[in-house]
């Protein structure tokens, strides 16, 4: 092929490259917000995995939690409400040498953006998608979200929610995600493990995080979850068993499971897209110079 695009040459050796840390921007969340634990877990996971900050792209949508990319020192794309996933997929296919992490809230991911999420999962694109699920719309000051429970009173449902909540974990299992986990902002160490393992996972890694909104959700609070969550790792759950994972995903009440529900090794979209076998698309040659024979098919 004709013109070649020269890959950028790193001026450091890999060992000297800076790892993702905090940026100069301080988080803008309310004091006590669950999202502080999520950004900390992503930072710690990336530090543990020693991935250079130049190779990390954090993509988000719109909502309180979607401000997250600004608070870390990696590359980032802060896009539109509900469109976290397609931007993240585009970044990944544009340069599959990058570590791409999608972040956002339950409104962004399970409301306006749920269509994209299902398709990304069935494609098994290698992404880590971390949702800060607070069961309410925060930035628009407290309306019902797709994960708000039946009966919950919000500004948009003053007499209580009258529709069933969407369960992100069951949805992920049904959609073909190959790594499905749930964390809790009240346990950063556990959450960091789930995120780090998700980043290392070969395929779509989904981590739904109970990340309480201290301002607009007075029901699903830190205390609510502290009293109820238990870890699948301590309950004899086999994460290779899809049926058992579905069973566990349906549990909601006095006991709510967190941890790794399911993990399976399958080829990723990038593995199966043969064009990408030649390396990251951004560094591949392009154009038609010297390929005039292509015109023969039009004769």
């Amino acid at each position: 092929m004709a013109e070649s695009v020269v890959a950028p040459i790193a001026s450091h050796s890999a060992t000297q490259l800076p790892i993702v840390g905090k940026s100069e921007v301080r988080p803008t969340w309310c004091p006590g917000c669950g999202d502080y634990s999520v950004v900390a877990s992503i930072e710690m996971a990336l530090k543990r995995l020693k991935i250079p900050s130049k190779d990390v792209v954090i993509v988000s949508g719109i909502g309180c939690s979607s401000n997250l990319p600004h608070f870390l020192s990696s590359y980032g794309f802060h896009g539109l409400h509900g469109r976290t996933i397609p931007v993240a997929e585009g970044v990944r296919w544009g340069n599959h040498g990058l570590t791409v992490i999608g972040t956002g809230g339950d409104g962004d991911g399970f409301g306006i953006g749920v269509g994209h999420l299902i398709h990304a999962m069935r494609r098994n694109v290698k992404l880590t998608y971390v949702t800060m699920d607070n069961q309410v719309y925060g930035l628009t000051t407290g309306q019902a979200s797709p994960t708000s429970r039946m009966g919950q009173k919000t500004k948009s449902t003053p007499t209580g929610v009258i529709e069933n909540p969407l369960d992100p974990v069951s949805l992920a299992l049904a959609s073909g995600a190959t790594y499905v986990a749930r964390g809790f902002s009240g346990d950063v160490k556990h959450l960091t493990d789930l995120v780090a393992n998700g980043i290392q996972h070969k395929g779509f890694a989904f981590v739904d995080v109970f990340s309480p909104c201290v301002t607009y959700n007075k029901v699903n609070t830190f205390d609510f979850f502290r009293q109820r969550v238990y870890k699948l790792e301590n309950a004899g759950h086999d994460p290779s068993d899809l049926g058992a994972a579905f069973q566990r995903s349906l549990e909601w009440g006095d006991k709510i499971p967190i941890g790794l529900f399911y993990s399976v090794d399958k080829p990723t979209y990038e593995d199966l897209e043969q064009v990408l076998a030649a390396g990251p698309l951004a560094y591949q040659p392009s154009g038609l110079k010297g390929r005039e024979k292509l015109l023969d098919e039009f004769v």
Partner: peptide
Amino acid sequence: LGIVVKQSEDELASINMAIGASYAGVRT
């Protein structure tokens, strides 16, 4: 030709995927 062709789930995805890939350094 070494061109990735993606049939998206809808046109919302089309434009956002195109933007993501362009941001990553690919003409889209």
